Amino acid sequence: MKSPQKERVRTPERLMEEIRGTLPPFGCAAVWFFGQESVAVKGSETVIHVDPFYSDYLEERGVKRAYPALLKPEHITIADLCLITHEHEDHLDPWTLKVIAEQCPETRFMAPLSCRAKLESTCGIMPERIIDALTGEWMDLKGRGGERIRIKPVPAAHEEVETTGSDRAHRYVGYLLDVNGVKVYHAGDTVVYPGLPELLAEEAIDLGMLPINGRDYFRTSRGIVGNMNVREAAELAKITHMDTVIPLHYDLFTGNSEKPGNFVQELYERYPEQKCHVMARSERFIYCSPRSFLT
């Protein structure tokens, strides 16, 4: 007889089985957290990976993780969409994306226009599988089983808003996702810039995922580009009326980290009615929109 403890061991294979087998009802979305800003989001059937960073690519160049990757690229056997927020290698991980493209031939990849050349040349992804993340408009995509997926790339400022060639071709983006009756916002790497709170407040976001690691003179002097800090993330969640907020980008590199408890404390002291959830590594979190219970 297997012990309960052994049953709880979450191997990469079991994680993939869990992702494949999770079928949220309408008004719900499943989220899995794999460190930094790597998450998987699932509506009714479609699996969307955002910034999957699972290789040892940076380790080989002397950039050490605070803990080993929870998945390896070869473990990814289900991926319908893969969204990339920008070209930094802890977000656009060429070795992970190359393996996903080979193992999951139906996967489509969305990324800023400035990432296209790298996706094609370094990752070996065919041009027809790449969708340019042009900001400001909703895109309708057909997911697994015909599921309707809506995606709207949103400009991000890491630490400045930058465009590459046109007003909609931003170098850094976040993503609004409308899946299975739930609106999700993954901010990517960004600070709060003029116009972002107003843009997000119009969208009635159910589940927001925000970086919290912040920025300072000393990290900037070492070439580390920053994001919003815990106070800014807490206020952004509150003033844009996010139903629930999840902190990201705080745990993977010791020189660029933050304590998620500081974010929770900030919310508790200033906005105690704001719902939040700090995700354990590889946790499956099922978000249920309050609207799903309305008759």
Rank of each mutant, 00 (worst) to 15 (best):
M1A: 03
K2D: 03
P4Y: 08
E7T: 03
V9N: 08
R10T: 06
P12H: 12
M16L: 11
I19D: 12
L23V: 15
P24M: 04
F26T: 13
G27Y: 14
G27M: 08
F33T: 01
Q36L: 06
E37M: 10
V39D: 01
K42Q: 10
G43Y: 03
G43R: 02
S44V: 01
I48C: 09
H49S: 15
E59N: 11
E59L: 04
E59W: 14
E60F: 15
R61K: 11
G62M: 03
K64M: 03
A66V: 00
A66C: 01
Y67D: 00
P68Q: 03
H75S: 12
A79W: 12
D80M: 04
D80G: 15
L83K: 08
I84H: 11
D90Y: 09
H91A: 15
L92S: 11
P94M: 10
W95T: 13
I100R: 09
E102M: 13
T107L: 01
R108G: 00
S114N: 15
K118T: 13
T122V: 14
C123G: 11
I125D: 10
M126T: 04
T135Q: 05
E137Q: 13
L141K: 08
R144L: 03
G145F: 02
R150L: 14
I151Q: 12
A157E: 05
T163Q: 08
T163Y: 09
G165N: 06
G165P: 02
G165S: 03
S166I: 03
S166T: 12
S166N: 15
A169F: 13
Y172A: 06
L176V: 02
L176N: 02
L176R: 11
D178H: 10
K183Y: 08
Y185W: 05
H186Q: 13
A187I: 04
V191D: 06
V192Y: 02
P194N: 08
L196N: 05
A201T: 02
I205N: 07
I212W: 00
D216K: 01
Y217A: 04
R219M: 03
T220Q: 11
T220K: 13
V225I: 09
A233I: 02
A233S: 07
I239F: 13
I239P: 04
M242T: 05
V245N: 11
I246D: 05
I246Y: 09
L248Q: 13
L248Y: 09
G255C: 00
N256I: 00
K259L: 02
Q265F: 07
L267V: 10
E269I: 05
R270L: 10
P272R: 09
P272H: 04
K275I: 05
C276W: 05
H277M: 02
F285P: 00
I286K: 01
P290A: 07
T295N: 11
